[in-house]
Design a protein around this nucleic acid. Sequence first.
DNA 1: CGTATTTATCATATTCGCATGATAAAATCA
DNA 2: TGATTTTATCATGCGAATATGATAAATACG
Lengths: 150, 150
Amino acid sequence: MLSQTAEYALRAVLYLAEHQGEHPIPVDAIAEDLSIPRNYLSKILHTLAKRDLLSSSRGRGGGFELTVPASALPLLAVVEPFDELEGRQQCLLGRTRCSDASPCAAHHRWKEMVDRVTAFFRETTVKDLIQDARPNGQAPRRTNLAVRSS
Amino acid sequence: MLSQTAEYALRAVLYLAEHQGEHPIPVDAIAEDLSIPRNYLSKILHTLAKRDLLSSSRGRGGGFELTVPASALPLLAVVEPFDELEGRQQCLLGRTRCSDASPCAAHHRWKEMVDRVTAFFRETTVKDLIQDARPNGQAPRRTNLAVRSS
DNA sequence: CGTATTTATCATATTCGCATGATAAAATCA
DNA sequence: TGATTTTATCATGCGAATATGATAAATACG
């Protein structure tokens, strides 16, 4: 469904969101933890930074951080820079021009599917996924937040 | 959504269904009418023939024909030989092992989408699309069925 | 039989997504 | 300043999907 690239982007952003509040996280750490090629991921995160979803900083203590709370970050924003989900390209039969006005044979039935999927990416946030991943209000693994009152 | 190949397959089958009842149709005609590379299409139709969706015959008067009525031909059957829609590969985050038992962060929400799309391809038939393309019960162009009351 | 028609294949390009390795540039810190 | 850390970027490679051109094999027809 998603390109490898968009998939990497999504996984990396999920990772960043899970480590929200900690210091910026270097590409190396993400790449290693998620088994994503380092330089490739670097380029992907750079793209997201250009879109202002992430901030990047260089040198010691640098890395990437979300600039937006996960609850305000729809999956669409993460994925769109790489895969064009909205806007055209969604004719099942590959027509360049396929619309309500001039529909292909599959248009009306397929449009319903496309709309649902687009809505999914538009309405589901990164936070939604993170919460789903922690059904019991589990804290992130290896957390040291429990003692972080300091 | 679909690979170029699967898209060609679907368009070609739609074309064949629209010309159901006429003599077998040579690849050349389909390729030209649909602007699909000839040899490429030939290979695609051959694949569909191996799956017994089409019959092929050589020599003068030869070509391809549907072996099944369009109403009994779900889109899935046309597309599946090229793009694996059902069965695995549908984890949004690219996990090789992602299931209800061991779900990724997106699993539950995404599963719903995947199920709908799979149902679409499983339940929509070639005939459905052809009928949609002829909203007013229009007969096919150049038809000679109008007098077929016999 | 020989010729034309048509599918079946094969060998080869082309293109693009994905990936790797090396280097540059920026920031931090001693 | 110089060494280290980290992002930014470049050059290149690789493989699979897509496409093209040529040839073989089957069928039909005179």
